[in-house]
Design a protein around this nucleic acid. Sequence first.
DNA 1: GCTTGACTTCGAGTGGGCTCGAACTGGAAG
DNA 2: CTTCCAGTTCGAGCCCACTCGAAGTCAAGC
Lengths: 131, 131
Amino acid sequence: MDISTRQDTLTVGEAAERVGLTTYTLRWYEQEGLVAPVGRDSAGRRRYTTGDVDWLFLLTRLRRTGMPVRDMRRYAELARQGDSTLGARRALFEAHRARVLARMAELGEDLRVLDHKIDAYRRAEGRCEGS
Amino acid sequence: MDISTRQDTLTVGEAAERVGLTTYTLRWYEQEGLVAPVGRDSAGRRRYTTGDVDWLFLLTRLRRTGMPVRDMRRYAELARQGDSTLGARRALFEAHRARVLARMAELGEDLRVLDHKIDAYRRAEGRCEGS
DNA sequence: GCTTGACTTCGAGTGGGCTCGAACTGGAAG
DNA sequence: CTTCCAGTTCGAGCCCACTCGAAGTCAAGC
């Protein structure tokens, strides 16, 4: 309907909004090699395909789970090399999965410490009530 | 038995090892007001009491659960003000607890994305097996 | 045809959390 | 008495992940 949305591609601003990153960050990711060079329109402006946006979304999940940008770059390089790296990519994800699980377990333990502390505060408040 | 461990206090190096931080970080925490000024021996060296170490341990849990140093400082300030801030400190912990829970939920979702991806890689590897 | 606003590149700046080097001091072991 | 080690202070430096300002370009709307 709107000629500007024709062709199923998004501008950097639109893509940024979709994936929850800023336009600055999107350009920086490309520059850092986390994203393969994005297609351009006749005026040299980036046009993000659905595939590009999916890739960016995946990157945000990796990032959010604590993967360093360095490792994301390595992953992106593997992906660009095609099917021969499928095994390596899976291994990378499995290793990362294990780290995320460990992190969750750690958070669970830390949560128990917080709970104990909250309890201690409740008891202390009870004792100080009348003072 | 060892005269140097007399008095139940630890040097900065020992304390660092116990809580899993570096001596640099321990001094920096003190400088940043995350830790009240630590007692000194006759030569001006820090001596960490059991209480100091417990406090440091708690700080490491807060840090590990993603609390910014800024908030840890605020918490330390409250603690230094005594019992009148018990309620505020509990509130701070409860708010933080909620954030940690949210973070864990988020990690759980992200984990599902990772699992789907691992699955996709497995299937792709199966398909490429003979090539 | 002019204005507006989102885009472009480039390099510099920011904020968080440490991390370190330099120069010095003091107590314990040989 | 000397050597050594672990401490002291101070300010500077580092790494990460963005974040931004400046100067310019271009297409669309009025």
